[in-house]
């Protein structure tokens, strides 16, 4: 711990290291949004219930509102801003667009990152498994059927939706 009661941490976000000094009560969610300006990660309930704050930590989906920033130090964090590469949307992002799986968009980063973690581990996930693994993300706009459709249309990182419509 630093003398001021702040903790020096290294947040590795979307492949880039950031040196930060944070108090122990700062969550990963707050560090991402306020210290790093990465507001794609949303702030909903703060209690682990809604999934709007989900990011990937070492490849696993976690609720950033329930992770202290000091506990994320040195871990590999991926946020929604890290999904597109070289100006190219990630296949999941493209599929969400193609299938109209985004309405207001508040849940979309949690949905897409949860789906990414699932497909990375299990590229052949069926609708039932997708439903179960994404059940921690609540969508007030009711896009669920289209989200499932979008995730199903992506397999092995290849967006198959275009051709099959």
């Amino acid at each position: 711990m630093l003398a001021s009661g702040l903790n020096g941490i290294t947040l590795r976000v979307n492949g880039r290291d950031h040196e930060l000094a944070v108090a122990a009560n700062v969550t990963l969610l707050e560090a991402l949004r306020e210290n790093l300006g990465l507001t794609g990660t949303k702030e909903g309930c703060g209690h682990g219930d809604c999934g709007a704050c989900i990011v990937l930590m070492d490849g696993h989906a976690v609720n950033a509102c329930l992770v202290l920033a000091v506990d994320a130090s040195g871990r590999d964090i991926v946020t929604i801003e890290g999904l597109a590469e070289g100006g190219q949307l990630h296949p999941l992002q493209q599929a969400f667009l193609d299938k109209g799986a985004v309405q207001c968009g508040f849940c979309s980063s949690g949905m897409m990152l949860s789906a990414k973690a699932l497909l990375d581990a299990n590229p052949d996930a069926d609708a039932e498994l997708i439903r179960r693994e994404l059940s921690g993300v609540l969508c007030r706009c009711g896009t669920y059927p289209r989200v499932i459709e979008a995730v199903l249309s992506v397999e092995n990182g290849i967006n198959r939706s275009g051709g099959e419509g």
Binding site: G48, I54, H60, A61, V62, N63, V67, A117, R132, E133
Partner: peptide
Amino acid sequence: LGTRSVRNR
């Protein structure tokens, strides 16, 4: 127990 993201932590 809970959701995927809860079980991961």
